[in-house]
Amino acid sequence: MERIGTIGDAAIEVIAAEGMRGLTHRAVDRAAGLPVGSTSYYARTRAALLELAVTRMVELDSTELEPPVGGLAEFLAATVHQAITEGRTRMLARYEFALEAVRRPELRAAYDRGGLLLRRRCAEILEAAGSPAPERHTRVLIGWLDGSIFDALAGTGSLAPPGLNELTESARELLAGLGLPDTR
């Protein structure tokens, strides 16, 4: 349903701009350019609206989990770079959701679906690259991805976020530390 996607996208934008406290049905209607009451037709409660938004985030993430075409370091660097540039809004909303999921168990399952999807895909990529311990290496890699993105968006690193070249070098160093080649 196209309308649900529009509402989900608008909810993500509202959360990124105003935080969880700013998420209301009317704010989403406004952000989506829909008549008042449209969002509440599809998501009657705030909990349903949160579920719709996190489900949309997972849906968008899953379309971006394509296998790397070039080198693994370039793929990882491009992933971080995209998240801190064009994907900034979704990442900020994701941080809001992460904290909300800690406090609201009903959101935890939906939030974790996206994280587990990313982790599974990461382990597959690392296994294909020759990792002898793809699950363990996934933890290290996700830590680097999450840390790099968070620092560039919300940490002190936001004062001078890394560019694509710096991220590529960092990814190469990380892969070398894991004993993985930068496959090309």
Results as ranks from 00 to 15, higher is better:
Glu66Lys: 14
Leu174Ser: 04
Ser38Tyr: 03
Ala47Tyr: 06
Glu2Tyr: 04
Asp61Leu: 12
Gly157Ala: 15
Val69Pro: 02
Thr45Trp: 07
Arg56Ile: 00
Ala27Arg: 13
Arg120Pro: 00
Gly143Asp: 14
Gly115Ser: 02
Glu166Ser: 06
Tyr42Ala: 10
Ala10Asn: 10
Asn165Trp: 04
Gly70Ile: 01
Thr63Pro: 00
Ile7Glu: 03
Leu141Asp: 00
Gly147Glu: 11
Thr85His: 14
Glu59Cys: 03
Gln82Lys: 13
Pro68Asp: 14
Ser38Glu: 13
Ala83Cys: 12
Tyr95Ala: 07
Arg56Met: 02
Arg104Trp: 01
Tyr111His: 02
Ser40Val: 11
Thr183Met: 05
Arg121Cys: 06
Arg108Thr: 08
Arg56His: 13
Leu175Arg: 11
Ala133Asn: 06
Ile84Leu: 08
Pro162Tyr: 02
Ala128Leu: 09
Tyr41Gln: 11
Ala152Ser: 15
Trp144Glu: 10
Ala11Gln: 13
Leu92Ser: 11
Thr183Asp: 08
Gly115Met: 02
His25Arg: 15
Pro132Ser: 12
Leu65Thr: 08
Leu50Asn: 02
Ala133Ser: 08
Trp144Met: 09
Trp144Thr: 06
Gly87Phe: 08
Thr45Met: 09
Ile15Leu: 15
Leu180Tyr: 09
Arg104Gln: 11
Thr55Val: 05
His137Gly: 03
Asp182Thr: 04
Glu74His: 14
Thr45His: 07
Tyr111Val: 00
Ser38Pro: 01
Arg90Ser: 04
Pro181Ala: 14
Gly19Phe: 09
Glu173Ile: 10
Gly22Asn: 13
